[in-house]
Design a protein around this nucleic acid. Sequence first.
DNA 1: CATAAACAGTTTACCATATAAACAGTATAT
DNA 2: ATATACTGTTTATATGGTAAACTGTTTATG
Lengths: 259, 259
Amino acid sequence: MSKNDKISEQAGNLPVGAALSWGLVEPPKRGPKRELSIPLIVETAVSIADKEGLSAVSMNRVASALGFTAMSLYRYIPSKSDLLLLMQDAVSGIPIPPEKKDGDWRESMREYVSATIQVFRDHPWFGDLPISGIPVMPNNLRVIDWALRPMRDFPLNDYEKMSIVLLLSSYARSSGLIQRDMDLAIQAGARPGEFSGLDYTAALKGLIKPDQFPNLYPVVMSGAYTGENEEENTVGNDFDFGLERILDGIAYYFDSRRK
Amino acid sequence: MSKNDKISEQAGNLPVGAALSWGLVEPPKRGPKRELSIPLIVETAVSIADKEGLSAVSMNRVASALGFTAMSLYRYIPSKSDLLLLMQDAVSGIPIPPEKKDGDWRESMREYVSATIQVFRDHPWFGDLPISGIPVMPNNLRVIDWALRPMRDFPLNDYEKMSIVLLLSSYARSSGLIQRDMDLAIQAGARPGEFSGLDYTAALKGLIKPDQFPNLYPVVMSGAYTGENEEENTVGNDFDFGLERILDGIAYYFDSRRK
DNA sequence: CATAAACAGTTTACCATATAAACAGTATAT
DNA sequence: ATATACTGTTTATATGGTAAACTGTTTATG
């Protein structure tokens, strides 16, 4: 163990970022008072990423924004990858609504998915962080706890419950990414088209030939692939549609088990 | 336009990597014969990533493996991000099985999801590439065409079809990532635990308190969260479960529309 | 209270990486 | 024949993460 590692036993094999987030690293007892703090650093990094994207987040940039040198951050966070973990967890700290008495599980799951999607829209860089393994950070786990809540009294085993959470969260992630891209495309406005879908429409229409792509061809031509003419979408919101199918599938499973 | 940009009109606003992949960049007419080629470079990069992960893929590393200097690659691929795009598309070039006459759409969708998951397992770095916008590369689109195939004659509009593809592909992605992590954890074997889930079990069991995480607590304690005791999983394969719920949801939608 | 240890933030240094620019040699169009 | 458009290389620059050594500060210990 190197000198700086005052990490509780409990941390086990957790990544250092996770240990930090769980407050498992003892604060130092002697020496000069700290002028920075982990939350302050993470908050600064998040706000830079929100404004200028993940690529703008460098140790130097974050430290400068705080009026310190890059190396000073290493007294708090051992590596940049840990900073990214902490950022990820920080923006996952969304408010979790109190449980409702009436207990409409479908509505509860909708709320969960919707809030999760919102994180991707509020922090466009969020979806750029690769997911490395199952969540172990406190705020992430709090969200998972929330996702499990509507199923508490359901006759499902834990594997089934986790599968359903996986279902919902993965759908939320994909939808969140696409909605984020749409947001960015709209923001880009007149700017020379770089981002996402809408800009590629013309190019794709020239490239997708009916013989090579018999099934995709009509979808691209109708504009449904790149998301033109959202108003023509008779199902209502595109993203709600998939979620309702998932919820139907879950409901169907409940019913078939009850028999 | 800079000198190297002999790109067809058709490329439109596509990222350069996509234009390359579509063969929209004219090959040069004069000058010395090329000693490298895009497919060769991409193949080399993929094999490095397969063996040593995405972080091992640097322009220098790829060029050295081919016996050239880093800068030579720039005669073929304008930037590293384009190389990553091409790698992504390359491993998406999976064989697409011929259409079956009997046409069991559920089984067809299972095949699609399963093949997609396999890409994440065969190329562990695949899931580390951030998704930037909707797919526009040829192999990616071929896979989407495949995903649409079982729905060709279904009474659904294009938005509904794309929503279902989104549903299936997002589930495949999440499952693929988790299965990849499990593969890596198993491979890691005796190595000091870094990766994914199983290693964190002990730590999480100490951290997840029933009052803070009332719903997650039992799931972590039973081992279902970190994926211990897979054999106890009565639903059979964990990943099939979620997919069957999606398929049920889709089937339910068909039925309710038919009425 | 004196001093040593543990700390804070900085300076300096090193290394890896992407890539621009200038170069020397080679095939092709005119 | 020669200009042009290439090839791959060399050289150079900028950026970024982070190790190590340094200076000054606070606290525990004798």
